[in-house]
Design a protein around this nucleic acid. Structure first.
Lengths: 111, 111
DNA sequence: TAAACACTGAACCATATGGTTCAGTGTAAT
DNA sequence: ATTACACTGAACCATATGGTTCAGTGTTTA
């Protein structure tokens, strides 16, 4: 339901960002991820669950091994939010310049 | 020290994203923000502290009122990370097409 | 000077996070 | 049939989060 909350929260952990980067290279089992990030199986499982709930990862269990790969979420809305924010930020900080511009314009009028 | 962690965590809350959008329009006191987001002063103060620690907001106290405005962080690294991820994601999902392409190429060779 | 205002800090609460260990369950290999 | 493997679930732990109330402190304003 609240996409941003879950996604940004998922991205706020270095291990989880690492897992995403890893899965971008190739799929991996929970065991492989746990080893790569020096963590217990159970610990890694929790991270994977968080990533799954955020739509960033999907998993499938075949036999006794669960394979993880990137999920459908492509961070489009998140990228869009950040871009919108950056435009807002630019406008806000350019406002300072705008004051200067405005003063210059008035000077000219006064001439 | 860990910029992503603090920033993404700060962005994972709807109230805080709202505060950022508000401050993008114009600066505001803690009281004003607390009213706008239907929250106690103390509650809003905590959010502002989180945003400050992430570099997204700066505040200045003049007399008895603390005024908040957007901070220096423009989400550049965050935008860059997300963009890199999206490229990774595209490559990963295009890989499926690539398999198809590869098969087609082999068929041609076999002809 | 008294009253109102804006904030701050401490304490509390319920829930979440990031990790662990331990005890299973089910699957694969010998 | 036994053993080893990969995962899962429950329980636990310390700390963080998102909120609150209550009791200040310091600043305006009347």
């Amino acid at each position: 339901m609240p996409p941003f909350d879950a996604t940004f929260a998922a991205l706020s952990d270095a291990t989880r960002r690492g897992v995403l980067e890893q899965l971008g290279r190739e799929g991996a089992s929970i065991t492989q991820l746990a080893e790569k990030f020096h963590m217990t199986l159970t610990g890694m499982k929790k991270h994977v669950v968080v990533l799954e709930r955020a739509g960033l990862v999907t998993t499938e269990k075949v036999g006794r091994v669960r394979t993880c790969k990137l999920g459908l979420r492509r961070l489009e809305e998140e990228a869009a939010w950040i871009e919108a924010y950056r435009r807002l930020w630019d406008a806000r900080f350019n406002a300072l310049d705008n004051v200067v511009e405005e003063l210059k314009r008035r000077e000219k009028v006064d001439e």
